[in-house]
Design a protein around this nucleic acid. Structure first.
Length: 844
RNA sequence: GCGGGCGUGGCGGAAUGGUAGACGCCGGGGACUUAAAAUCCCCUGAGCUUUGCUCGUGUGGGUUCGAGUCCCACCGCCCGCACCA
């Protein structure tokens, strides 16, 4: 290696090996240093590392390295969220085993992560498909079962009749299976559920303690949990039965003009039993699509059952309809309809000519004002409502609930949008649910000493359906209770279960149990969790739930797993395409030559259209492979790019020019470091006070920026300091500045820092485990400051004054300015505002 | 529809209510070189009658000595949820 250029191809690997050799990043749970747990969402091993992973892990890495330098014991682990459908799809398409495919991908991606020099504790690495991991997961699942948090229930699922599997809602596109294209059927299956609703209130309340989570994520979870309060009461029906309904607006009860039930409601089913017309209507309701656009435009449709419901106060007979807009799985599946004050009810009443009474108005005088073509759902005063008339909305709600409870026909109720979590999947590549079905003993958990229940290796994917179900021997076993012949559960767990507790296993990995509570307590909660916004609801809610559930079972002390959450933006790139008839053909950035304003295809030199800057995706081919750019520019340039310019929560536009600039900066730093090593050091004994000040200010500011995850600002500060050091004349101060600069850039560019220190004798030992430079608070403030002088709020001049100059002195200095005097032009000075150390504003 | 966020040069973006545009990219000019690359230096919001002045942070108002920042209304874009009673 010459001193001319930094050569990442040679240096990167050497330093990665040196860190590994010195076990720099292995976290010690027994250490008495203060502890920090930095975690990025672990990746799914899909094949290769994506640029989004690089951005995510670079951010975490800067934090981990920084905190290590600040003397903390840092846990920064990595592993693999390795179960899931892509492995089974690969098995079907390529005839490989899901396990083999997954572990191959892990090997590839681990190699790629290592090339980036991340300060990860690889000694704690695991994949969720390791039998050891999922065995512990099975034990935890049984513990939840024993604590009443697991149950089985018959439930409706999306069934793909061709693939013979259950589909998630997201996999149903226009009513068809996303893979097979077959019409999806609703099927009732016995499914395993986790009782997340038991913690609904707690999960909701916990959100308010998560001050270091993005408000957006907290709101999304709040909406998802969806707490609503109202009245549940029963109508007496004309057929002698009772019909419970739920409403959040009991105050509008005198405005009810009809009652509606969902198509799947027992009342509807009973009517349909003797009416083909009702059957047809119910079938029509079920056919409707569920996409947002369809729902928005869907007409409100109803079927009059001929039954009536008796109003609890007026005794009036309200017609009961089957309606397509009433949902079976919310509330009681039946509603009292108040057309005047609910838009859906309004549309329905308008269509079927039902009365639309007003029971809320802006004032008593407005009690009979007609509606202007739509319902009025707002606040106001109750009118036309007997004993409620004149009350405010909230007051009336309370009054109706009180009377309903006193009369014994209804009660105040809280309804949640949150549903229990169905975790059964009819798939092979997941954690086998550790239960046995025995004809005599029922459902029996597998004894813990028989865990893990391992997946069989010899499976085939040539036929559709769950390989576990048709495996010749796997499911046959004996009942742990009675010893008789029995069958294993063939469902596996939703992959979100795997990622709901992995952070605990990273913190503590005993052989004989999932984790050790005391060791976990050393690290948890995670101090900083970083990942994509796409996990705002499911993963993050499930992880919060599991942590609570395990605490509920006495296995943990903490309830909130992630003290701080950061959601990073995506990496974007412009697209390149050409029209080929009706089809748009896309090209990768590597196939395209970017000219000043346009772009041409390298193969034929003809222009291609430059499209919008959007998220990198395979379909639009606007992707760059991290391995290519690491090879071309080195790990540090790539890392530096990931941190530069865009604030980390926003999207980062990838550009060739940008990465080239980062590559140039790496070399520029190298030349600066080289100067210090090549006789520049101490060439002049003079002190450079201004430079020292700049160094201390930058060290303090960069630390602050890193702690706030404002990496783009830290980067800008470093550029400024580098510029200042380059310009400064030789001095002991300058040499010292360069030594400190090595430390300062090391969290972002660790390879360059190590190589420079070693090559140019800029310190001893590894930079990675060295201490962050000390800051002298006295050097953070300047002796002299620039004061802005304004006349009526407009800048007229600037002047230099001592930092602690008095108000009087500043005022005098300002008035002495020729420019200021010219602006004032003899006008009478009415007021002078002086902000010491900042500005003087003269008001005339 | 409901909820949330964001609008600053050619681009990414800085800016505790106090000098708008730090820092980077692009672009222009120059130095070095036989030449290129690399490197270094200078310029780079708009306009004007250019020692300087005026305008300028989506639009229109307001509060303030002073507003990119605070308040009100509007326009545009992005994200999430959604027939949730």
């Amino acid at each position: 290696m010459t001193a001319e250029r930094f050569d990442p191809a040679s240096a990167d690997g050497r330093w990665q090996a040196a860190w590994e050799e010195a076990k720099c990043f292995e976290a010690d749970s027994a250490s008495d240093k203060p502890k920090t747990y930095v975690l990025e969402m672990f990746p799914y091993p899909s094949g290769r590392i994506h640029i989004g992973h690089v951005r995510n892990y670079t951010m975490g890495d800067v934090l981990a390295r920084y905190h290590t330098m600040r003397g903390r014991e840092v846990l920064h682990p990595m592993g693999w969220d390795a179960f899931g459908m892509p492995a089974e799809n690969a098995a079907m398409e390529k005839g490989v085993h899901p396990g083999g495919w997954t572990y191959d991908n892990i090997a590839t991606m681990k190699g790629q992560l290592k090339q980036l020099g991340f300060a990860l504790d690889w000694s704690r690495e695991f994949a969720t498909c390791d039998p050891e991991y999922y065995g512990h997961e099975q034990a935890l699942f049984i513990s939840l079962f024993e604590n009443g948090l697991v149950y089985r229930k018959e439930s409706e699922v999306n069934w793909d009749p061709v693939d013979m599997t259950v589909l998630a809602n997201e996999q149903v596109i226009d009513g068809k299976g996303w893979r097979s294209g077959a019409e999806v059927e609703k099927r009732k299956l016995n499914q395993w559920f986790l009782k997340i609703t038991h913690f609904a209130e707690d999960l909701l309340e916990g959100l308010s303690t998560l001050e270091n989570w993005p408000q957006k994520v907290r709101l999304m979870q709040e909406n998802w949990i969806g707490k609503s309060q109202g009245l549940e009461f029963a109508f007496d029906l004309s057929n002698g039965e009772t019909l419970p309904v739920y409403t959040t607006r009991p105050d509008t009860i005198f405005g009810a003009s009809f009652v509606a039930v969902a198509a799947d409601h027992p009342v509807a089913q009973a009517v349909a039993a003797d009416s083909t017309q009702a059957q047809d209507f119910i079938a029509l309701c079920k056919k409707g699509g569920t996409t947002a656009a369809e729902l928005e435009t869907a007409e409100k449709l109803g079927f009059d059952t001929g039954i009536t419901a008796k109003h609890p106060f007026t005794g009036e007979a309200l017609p009961v309809y089957i309606a397509n807009f009433v949902l079976m799985d919310y509330g009681t599946g039946a509603i009292m309809a108040v057309p005047g004050h609910d838009q859906r009810d309004f549309e329905f009443a308008t269509k079927y000519g039902l009365p639309i009474p007003r029971v809320v108005a802006v004032s008593i005088e407005e009690a009979d004002r007609p509606f202007a073509g739509e319902a009025e759902a707002g606040d106001g005063v109750i009118v036309n409502s007997d004993f409620l008339t004149g009350m405010a909305v909230e007051e009336a709600k309370a009054e109706v609930i009180t009377r309903a409870e006193a009369g014994g026909w209804g009660q105040g109720t809280t309804v949640w949008r949150l549903r229990d979590w169905g975790v059964s999947r009819q798939r092979y590549w997941g954690t086998p649910i550790p239960f046995i079905h025995c004809e005599t003993c029922g459902v029996v958990p597998v004894p813990k000493d028989q865990l893990p229940v391992k997946l069989p290796e010899d499976v085939s994917f040539e036929q559709p359906g769950n390989p576990l179900l048709r495996h010749p021997t796997w499911k046959h076993t004996t009942c742990p209770k009675c010893g008789g012949a029995a069958e294993r559960e063939t469902d596996t767990l939703d992959t979100f279960v795997n990622s709901s507790w992995y952070f605990l296993r990273f913190a503590s990995q005993p052989k004989d149990k999932p984790f050790d509570a005391e060791e976990v307590a050393q690290w948890m909660p995670v101090d900083q969790y970083i990942g994509g916004i796409e996990h705002a609801i499911l993963h993050l809610l499930y992880a919060r739930f599991w942590t609570r559930a395990l605490a509920h079972c006495g296995k943990l002390e903490v309830t909130e797993p992630f003290a701080s959450l950061f959601t990073q933006g995506m990496v974007t790139h412009e697209t390149y395409s050409r029209k080929d008839g009706p089809r748009e053909v896309y090209y990768t950035p590597a196939e395209v030559e970017r000219t000043g304003t346009g772009a041409t295809l390298k193969t034929d030199g003809q222009p291609v259209a430059i499209g919008k800057v959007i998220k990198m995706s395979k379909s639009k081919k606007n992707v760059v492979d991290p391995e290519d750019i690491i090879r071309d520019y080195g790990a540090d340039a790539v890392r530096w790019f990931m941190l530069s310019d865009s604030p980390p929560e926003r999207d980062l536009p990838w550009s060739e020019a940008g990465i080239e600039g980062c590559g140039r900066f790496v070399q520029r730093l190298w030349r600066l470091f080289a100067q210090c090593g090549n006789g520049g050091a101490g060439a002049d004994a003079e002190q450079d006070k201004a430079l020292e000040r700049k160094v201390h200010q930058t060290v303090a500011a960069v630390a602050e920026d890193i702690e706030a995850l404002s990496f783009n600002k830290a980067v800008a500060r470093i550029y400024e300091l580098v510029g200042a050091v380059e310009k400064a004349g030789a001095s002991a101060s300058r040499s010292e500045a360069i030594r400190k600069l090595v430390l300062l850039v090391s969290p972002m560019m660790p390879h360059l820092a190590e190589e420079a220190r070693a090559q140019f004798a800029l310190g001893t030992g590894l930079v990675a485990t060295d201490a962050w430079p000390q800051v002298d608070p006295a050097l953070l403030v300047e002796d002299e400051v620039t004061i802005a002088v304004q006349h009526k709020g407009k800048l007229r001049d600037t002047l230099t004054a001592p930092r602690d100059a008095s108000k009087e002195d500043l005022e005098a200095l300002a008035l002495a300015s020729e420019k200021v005097q010219r602006s004032i032009d003899g006008a009478e000075i009415r007021k002078v505002i002086v902000v010491p150390g900042r500005l003087v504003n003269i008001v005339t």
